[in-house]
């Protein structure tokens, strides 16, 4: 399975980067989501894959052996929620920028750049 996850992470990053470079807000957001998914997948796989044994200590026991690695899971869990927060903020920005600037083409959102005309 490792090779599949590695390939999937590569696909997701490549597709995400490609979409982010498209210069349009909605595909950009799609790309962002894909890359954050890929990041979670990479962290998860880096903690090694253990088939089907969640890190839950059975009632009455003190410890557990051979369960899947709990540490990356804890890291990803918050990363997912934070990634969601970031995505939603980006969504709000995309929405607002379309409303204020009247465009979804990111290359036209350059009013603060030097050497370019406002809203050209």
């Amino acid at each position: 399975m490792e090779i599949m996850i590695a390939l999937l992470a590569g696909f997701l990053v490549a597709a995400g980067a490609y979409l982010m470079m498209s210069g349009k807000t909605l595909p950009y957001l799609f790309g962002l989501t894909m890359i954050s998914n890929a990041a979670n997948l990479i962290i998860f796989a880096s903690g090694r894959l253990t088939f089907g044994k969640p890190p839950l200590i059975p009632e009455g026991a003190h410890s557990i052996e051979g369960a899947s690695n709990a540490l990356p899971q804890a890291l990803i869990l918050t990363a997912i929620v934070i990634g969601f927060g970031l995505l939603v903020f980006a969504l709000a920005l995309a929405y607002r920028s379309y409303y204020v600037l009247g465009t979804t083409k990111m290359d036209h959102m350059n009013a603060s750049e030097p050497g370019t005309e406002v809203g050209s």
């Binding site: 929620v81 969601f84 927060g85 939603v88 903020f89 969504l91 709000a92 929405y95």
Partner: peptide
């Protein structure tokens, strides 16, 4: 925090989308 944060943005987004 998760409940309030998500609902906060959801309501704001819906509010803005509906009214604008």
């Amino acid at each position: 925090v998760v409940l309030g944060g998500v609902c906060g943005i959801l309501f704001a987004l819906e509010d803005v989308v509906a009214n604008e």
